[in-house]
Design a binder for these strands. Structure first.
Lengths: 126, 126
DNA sequence: CGGTATCCGTGTGGATACTG
DNA sequence: CAGTATCCACACGGATACCG
């Protein structure tokens, strides 16, 4: 487990550090918008406005904010073309593409169990 | 893609419904606490208080709230033993265990790219 | 012990407006 | 077009208290 806890023993200090970092990354990545951005980018390169249009319901603010975060973590690459009007393109990096594969798994899971989940909800709500 | 958008054409109505449901499930599941609960449950059966102790930093409220949500979606099973004091145990269902496998992928990804991400952050913050 | 309800601060995210 | 800043509502989540 990434998120295992390490008690105070000195030799585990760096492991504890790695763990808290892992938690941080986990929190960054395990959020709706970040996952959707990565999923939509896929193998393509998209402009800011294209992402904005494709990801239904995302606000200007959330898009920039999450893109910045993903860039900081090295999951997307941001390329600025110095033209007027400006043109900014986003592409997944290698780590980003690797992450995308696990997200694909999540999407496949959702499709696979869609019916079961809907049924379970109806049962529960009664 | 789960989250593909369907324009108004009538024959796509049910696909659009399935898609909006998929989004909903995606939002439920793509959140820090839900993912951590599922990961910690693993193959084990745990009591409420055990989960509370193992998942560092989760509040009583968040735990119940997320467990209720996961139960509603049929991802965990809740068993109540009518004793005093009460004993409530949680176990992953089959869909829950399937989901856990994709989350394992996410954890593995985090471990794999921990160093790269840390390096990227340092570069970015300068 | 586990669950629910209430209170309440704050962080998140939308809308808007302005810059390069 | 893309990004930043400001304002502000409201939903989220923590603390606390009480019930079965």
């Amino acid at each position: 487990m990434v998120t295992k806890q390490f008690k105070g023993s000195p030799e585990d200090a760096d492991l504890a550090r790695a763990d808290s970092l892992a938690r941080e990354i986990f929190s960054d990545v395990a959020n709706k918008w970040a996952l959707l951005i990565i999923e939509f980018l896929g193998e393509r390169t998209l402009r800011f406005s294209e992402l904005r249009n494709e990801i239904e319901g995302i606000s200007h603010k959330m898009l920039t904010q999450n893109l910045r975060m993903l860039e900081r973590n090295g999951l997307v690459e941001r390329r600025v073309h110095p033209t007027v009007p400006p043109r900014v393109e986003y592409t997944l990096t290698e780590p980003g593409r690797a992450l995308r594969e696990t997200i694909d798994g999540l999407c496949a899971w959702t499709r696979r169990y869609l019916g079961d989940i809907e049924a379970s909800r109806l049962r529960f709500d009664a």
